[in-house]
Amino acid sequence: MSTVGTVEKAFAAALYADGHEGLDTGASLLAAAPAADAELRLRGEEFVRRAWERGWQPADIVRIVRRDLGEAHERLVAGLIAGESGRYAHLAPRWRAQLDELKQAPYAADRFSYAGAVLELYRLLVRLPSIEPVGPVPGAPFTAEPSAHEPRMLTRIRALLAKAEATGYPEEAEALTAKAQELMARYSVDEALLAARTHRPDAPAACRIGVDAPYETAKAILLDAVASANRCRAVWNSAFGFSTVVGFEADLEGVELLYTSLLVQGTTAMTRAEAVQRAGGRKRTKTFRQSFLMAYAHRLGERLAAVAEEVVTADLLPVLASRDVAVTDRAEEMFPQTTTTRVRGVTDEAGWTHGTAAADSAQVSKTHPRITP
């Protein structure tokens, strides 16, 4: 049998039927045919390309493979993504950044185990549904950024937030985070005014941010609060573990940076508070954590909304209002049938109290005199 015929027969047995029997049959066929490995890899890269055409990006694919399969499959898909991406001379900046995050490492196993893992991965890839696209796929035209380097302001913001995550002193973390939010707001307004003055073609874009278990509802609420405060819209897809954030490019990366940092700071504060609870004889860890993070997200939402009102002066309202309308229109175009859900699961008073206090410690204000860039 030819290598193509072997691969086709293995796929017919394994990819389009549920259960392990078909996987075992397909793996046995491939294990006995080493010459089919090259064809098998080409088919995998083709499945990756088809997933991109259905709206998935590299980080999305890696995230769901990691969640639904495992580390070995993540290694395999990273290699396929790198191989398929290598066919294209030019890639959009966000796409390139996701490729830089890939963890590539060889997967060592006996032939049967290797073939079985490959078929499990391909079964997942061919069943991925279409989702809302958030950028051009490789090979499609895109608007290149004026510079390959990150804007200086974002570099400063990133450095401030890294320091906030690293410090063991809550007051210092508060001050650093406050300064980062101040710079984010200033950068956003400057970009909006520049676009208005120069009549630069500027339209909302979108990106996806992972919202991983556990306690994903609280994390999604926190991301929504950060996005709203920075003139963006976030739509959570609980089934696939991500939120799509819609906004102007000047705001999107800032949202991801601040959300990630606040999540790290909140998790650190939660671990510290949980240790105190355990020292007092408490054992209900899960309910404490869930209530803590819900309170943390809720309180930060209130504080960020207040800050958002403070940083906008009357002369900026017309420019920013037009951008708000554009973001809303784009989000509604992408997601015409969003739904709301009632949040449940806050049952631990101590967790809620500690989470609220942690949010207050991570407060974000307009200015803070103790920090100099």
Score class of each variant (00 low, 15 high):
S2F: 08
S2N: 14
G5R: 14
K9S: 15
L15N: 03
G19R: 02
H20S: 12
E21H: 03
D24R: 08
S28N: 13
A31E: 05
A31L: 06
A35D: 08
R43P: 05
G44H: 09
W52I: 00
E53C: 01
P58K: 12
I64L: 10
L69R: 01
H73D: 12
A78M: 00
G83V: 02
E84M: 13
W95I: 07
Q98K: 15
D100T: 02
D100S: 03
K103R: 04
A105W: 10
P106L: 06
Y107T: 10
F112S: 06
Y114W: 08
A115T: 01
G116M: 11
A117Q: 05
E120T: 06
L121P: 02
L121G: 02
R123Y: 04
V126E: 01
P138F: 01
A144M: 14
A144G: 13
P146T: 08
A148W: 11
H149V: 14
L154M: 08
R156E: 04
I157R: 00
L160E: 03
L160W: 03
A164F: 01
T167V: 11
E171N: 11
E172I: 05
T177S: 11
A180V: 15
A185M: 12
S188W: 07
D190T: 02
E191K: 01
R197C: 12
T198A: 10
D202H: 06
D202W: 01
P204C: 08
R208Y: 11
Y215R: 14
T217F: 14
K219Q: 15
I221Q: 01
I221S: 03
R233K: 12
R233Y: 05
S238G: 13
F240R: 12
F240E: 09
F242W: 15
S243M: 13
S243P: 09
A250F: 07
D251V: 03
E253Y: 11
V255N: 05
V255P: 04
Y259E: 09
T260W: 04
S261W: 06
E274P: 00
E274M: 08
A279Q: 06
G280N: 06
R282D: 13
K283C: 04
R284C: 00
T285V: 07
Q290C: 09
S291R: 03
S291V: 04
S291L: 02
F292G: 05
F292D: 04
M294G: 03
M294F: 10
M294V: 04
A295S: 11
R299V: 13
L300A: 12
G301I: 06
L304V: 14
L304A: 15
E309L: 11
V311M: 10
V312E: 07
L316G: 07
V319D: 15
R323P: 13
D324Y: 15
D324G: 14
A326G: 01
A326Q: 03
E333W: 10
M334L: 15
Q337Y: 10
T347F: 01
T347D: 03
D348T: 11
A350N: 09
H354K: 15
H354V: 13
A358W: 09
D360A: 09
D360M: 12
A362I: 03
V364R: 12
T367V: 10
P369Q: 11
P373S: 04
